[in-house]
Nucleic acid binder design. Structure first.
Lengths: 106, 106
DNA sequence: CGGTATACATCGTATCACGAAGTATCAACC
DNA sequence: GGTTGATACTTCGTGATACGATGTATACCG
């Protein structure tokens, strides 16, 4: 999938991946894999960005001797998903514009 | 509309704007306005990129004493639009993932 | 003991949309 | 004839950001 198309989708995907249950980096990547692929460096950049924007909070917990950072979505994060649904209407109108066939040309 | 979301859409929009009829910069911006807004600097950057990628050709013509550069879509440009339709399936699956409600959570 | 999976972090780079500013022509208005 | 606004294209610098490469560290399995 084209990198440029992924932009703007990735943030929301990450938020969606934690919206029902707190999760951590490695797990998020696995959960998103069937839907959208992203590298670790990309994910951790995104998580930091979302934290700075108050869309999620972080909690460090030990698990099997290793540290894990669990991410929890905030109301702002949920709002971001809702806003995305609105933006989707614009996206759909763009899609229709691009795929619209001109009868005169056909 | 979020800048990041526009990325990956803009190229295809510009190609769509000239797919039925050759057009020039200023006109393309006006035609796209109801669908997606873009500045002149953005458009001319995109046009150069698409030309470099052989997705369109350029022809300079005089019109009312002023020069205009008319852009014409190539087969590669049309293929780009077709490829976009395929990518759209992935986009839709991402949308469904993001908006999917988890019954257990509701 | 070595390989693989887990888990997170940092750095540098390339791509790209945009605002700002500039150049130039033409039509309309006063 | 001077001013303004629309038309038309160009260049420059900046900020955002996805990613590969690389590094660190632990757990588990054979």
């Amino acid at each position: 999938m084209d990198i440029q198309l992924k932009r703007g989708l990735l943030d929301v995907c990450v938020l969606a991946a934690i919206k029902n249950e707190d999760s951590y980096g490695y797990q998020i990547i696995k959960d998103l894999k069937p839907c959208i692929e992203l590298s670790e460096s990309t994910l951790y950049t995104i998580l930091k960005r979302l934290e700075a924007a108050n869309m999620l909070t972080v909690r460090t917990a030990e698990h099997g001797g290793r540290l894990r950072k669990y991410y929890h979505i905030t109301p702002e994060g949920r709002k971001r998903i809702e806003d995305f649904k609105d933006e989707w209407k614009e996206i759909m109108s763009i899609y229709r514009f691009v795929t619209k066939e001109d009868e005169a040309y056909e």
